[in-house]
Computed example of a mutant assay.
Amino acid sequence: MTNEELILERLDRIEAQLAPISHTASGISELREDLIPLSGQAFRLLSRELEDVESGFQLEDLLTLLKRTLRSVKHIIFSLEQLENIVDFVTTIEPLLKSAVPQVINYLDDLEQKGVLRIINATLDVRAKVASAYTAEDVDQIGDGAVALLGLTKKLSDPQSVEFLEKLAGLPSKVDLADAKPIGPFGMLGALSSKEARQGLGVLMQLTKAMGSLKNGGNSTRADQSEPIA
Rank of each mutant, 00 (worst) to 15 (best):
F78Q: 13
E4A: 03
G187T: 08
P159L: 04
E49F: 11
L80W: 13
V87F: 00
G200P: 01
V126T: 06
D144T: 14
M211F: 15
T24P: 00
N106F: 12
D12C: 07
A16C: 04
E54C: 06
F78E: 11
L204R: 00
T2I: 10
D110W: 08
V130E: 12
T24V: 09
S26Q: 15
L62A: 15
G190Q: 12
K167T: 03
R118S: 08
T221P: 01
Q41M: 04
A191P: 01
E51L: 06
K195W: 04
I86P: 00
L6Q: 15
I119D: 02
Q17C: 03
V203R: 01
M211V: 09
I86C: 02
S193T: 13
S72L: 06
V73G: 00
Q58L: 01
G115S: 06
E4H: 05
R68V: 12
A42Y: 12
G170F: 02
R68C: 05
D125M: 03
K67T: 08
S79G: 11
V162I: 12
S193L: 12
M211C: 06
I120L: 14
L149Q: 11
I21D: 00
E5G: 02
A178W: 05
L171E: 02
G170N: 13
L46A: 15
T91W: 02
A210W: 05
R222F: 02
E49Q: 14
L31C: 10
E137V: 12
P182K: 02
D61K: 08
E84R: 08
L46G: 13
K155Y: 08
L46V: 14
S132T: 09
S79T: 15
G202R: 01
Q160P: 00
G217K: 04
M205R: 01
N106Y: 13
L111Q: 08
V126W: 05
F164I: 11
G200E: 06
D52C: 01
I93P: 01
Q17S: 08
A223V: 01
K98Y: 04
M188Y: 05
G217T: 04
G218T: 05
G143I: 09
R222A: 14
Q160W: 03
K174L: 14
